[in-house]
Amino acid sequence: MTRWPMLLALLAVALVAPTVVYPVLLMTVLSFIVFACSFNLLLGYAGLLCFGHAMFFGGAAYVTGWFLKTTGASIEIGILVGGLSAAALGLLVGLVAVKRSGIQFAMITFAISQFVYFVLLQAPFTGGEDGLQRIPRTALLGVVDVSKSGSLYYVVLGFTVLAVLFFYRVVHSPFGEILKAIRDNEARVESLGFRPERFKLIAFVISAGMAGVAGGLKAVAFQIATLTDVSWTVSGEVILMTLLGGLGTLAGPMVGAVIIIGLNDFLSQFGEWSLISQGVIMLVVIIFLRRGVVGEIDAFLRRKKVAPAR
């Protein structure tokens, strides 16, 4: 209840942000917010560490780009097609992977993502090393012109808001309750008559699909889909964002995405320093901020709330 004013304030900031910050940077942040939230659904709520999430993100960027280029369909259809294709890929990967857990799950997803990377490198429609270029920003719903970054930003913002509401719903649903129980104690959930692997598979498909939506958003923002978005470094980056922001919290991955993308943009002028800074941030998180930024703030507020009562 007390969160609503804060959320509205945040939305207000997001609405006026393009007047201050370069819209393409903002759209990058938003697409990574969706991406990090999708990753958080898996690791934070299902306890599954996917080490190849970039295959859904980057793969969908290609699909969205290719679809918009060849069909000229309206932009929202293109983004949704990207999401659906990633969900379909997620179903295939999930069928293989969810029966395993822990490091095995991470390695299987990593191996498949490397395979997807190779396929996209070789496939004729992706443009190989050059990437898929000149992705058109077709009209929204076939009528609203969003070819300028300033207006496209609001499309991306709209998608992001819907995505975050969707994640909130999934986490606070009957399904989400079982998912959290599986994360906490899978054997017990099974002993209560559930099939945990089915829940994990559904969570995986949802997560992959939303990572795909994020990839679609990035594709229309940059008008290019590249191999970088499918690479394992992006898979690593999304892990970093989620852990930095706070695993298993709704706001955590968003905060993490803002910090990492912001830092990357700021540090890009110093070349390799952006990589070094990521390493340093990772260390700081591991040593001092186990629960991530949002997790630590939560814990701090809870302590403050409890303290006067004692």
């Binding site: 999934v170 606070h172 009957p174 399904f175 309750e177 079982i178 209560l192 008559g193 559904i202």
Partner: peptide, 24 residues
Amino acid sequence: ENVRVALQSDYGRAYQFWRSLKAV
């Protein structure tokens, strides 16, 4: 919630990720 998870076993809504917790 711990107990409700068990009750969900027979309730047929456990896969409904699109509904709010009001459903349970």
